[in-house]
């Protein structure tokens, strides 16, 4: 708990700093009122989205599957034309200057998209060559990642494990020293250890001055970004630092646990004084209507309902709580 608080304080300081910082820094990515619809306008994948990313920032797009993250990435990497709105990467317009953008950005699609029948080494060489550079020239940038791949360098890319594939894809996206790196759900389907490693790598890349946009459906990864945008159904619900987003959480949050969790959820949801109740692992996260109900009252009422081993505590909201709350309010 202590360490958590310490982290929050750090985050707070950092958040203030980065707010000041972002006011003066160069904008690497700007998105203005982008709209993209599919099926002749039936499905609005991206609905009036605007945001900015400063130089050297690690920016996260957080949202469930189908929220429009990939569409935004594809627009920014010039693979998709927006229906309306403008966007620029590194000062270049995504529609007019698409050729310049393609030389300067790195893109790692959500699906593994390297040549499975070429070896690790060949893939890396290939991508270096098409960007008119060599592996040796930018080796320092990928060195930390590539050393882990080195033992398998003659292996076909298709025969690598999931985590290794991701590392190779990241190397290939980095080999031409891009100014902005787009990572579309890089950690989806990757084990916990590899995910952690992956985020460590992103942090070290950030220190090299590369601006990174990353999308993820995992809320726990949100706190690892400097700024996050929470998206749902193609619209941005909130953009801020993770700390500020948590701070903006309007209610006091409680975690509730008892012996029969299924029945507990029903009981809580049927209680008119409970505003929201979501299941989070071992606990149900609960907010109260207008803060009327006191914690003690809730304990008594639940005990009367026959719940044993009752445990209730006040907690700091997580990004997921904020996400659920924002979704509920919509």
């Amino acid at each position: 708990m202590e360490s958590w608080k310490l982290k929050m304080e750090n985050d707070q300081k950092y958040s203030q700093l980065s707010t000041i910082h972002s006011q003066f820094s160069i904008k690497m990515v700007t998105v203005n009122n982008i709209v993209k619809a599919y099926n002749k306008g039936e499905v609005k994948a991206v609905n009036d989205v605007s945001f900015e990313v400063s130089k050297g920032e690690l920016f996260g797009l957080i949202g469930a599957d189908g929220a429009g993250k990939t569409s935004i990435f594809r627009i920014l990497t010039t693979l998709l034309l927006p229906d309306s709105g403008t966007a620029s990467v590194n000062g270049f317009d995504v529609v007019k200057d698409y050729k310049t953008i393609r030389k300067n950005v790195g893109y790692m699609p959500g699906k593994f998209s390297l040549y499975q029948d070429l070896s690790v080494e060949e893939n890396l060489n290939f991508f270096a060559t098409v960007f008119n550079t060599t592996v040796a020239e930018n080796y320092d940038l990928v060195k930390d990642i590539y050393v882990q791949l080195e033992p398998f360098k003659t292996r076909r890319a298709g025969k690598l494990s999931g985590g290794m594939k991701q590392k190779l894809a990241l190397c290939c996206a980095l080999i031409h020293r891009p100014t902005v790196l787009f990572l579309d759900e890089p950690t989806t389907g990757v084990d916990v250890v590899s995910r952690k490693e992956f985020w460590e790598m992103l942090k070290s890349l950030k220190q090299q001055g590369i601006t990174i946009l990353v999308s993820t459906p995992y809320m726990d990864e949100a706190t690892l970004c400097e700024h996050i945008a929470l998206i749902q159904n193609g619209s941005i619900m909130s953009i801020d630092t993770p700390y500020n987003i948590i701070k903006k959480f309007p209610d006091t949050l409680f975690a509730v646990r008892a012996d029969n969790m299924g029945r507990l959820q029903n009981a809580l949801r049927n209680n008119p004084q409970i505003k929201s109740c979501f299941s989070f692992g071992d606990f149900h996260h609960v907010t109260m209507e207008n803060g009327k109900l006191r914690m003690e009252n809730l304990v008594t009422s639940l005990k009367n309902d026959g719940f044993n081993d009752l445990e209730i505590k006040e907690i700091t909201p997580t990004i997921e709580d904020c996400f659920m709350n924002l979704m509920d309010n919509k």
Binding site: L79, K103, V105, Y107, P109, S113, L114, Y115, F127, V130
Partner: peptide, 13 residues
């Protein structure tokens, strides 16, 4: 099908 064309499209090829 394998999506490599996407990756190629984001290069100066």
């Amino acid at each position: 099908e394998t999506g490599t064309i996407e990756q190629i499209n984001v290069t100066p090829i």
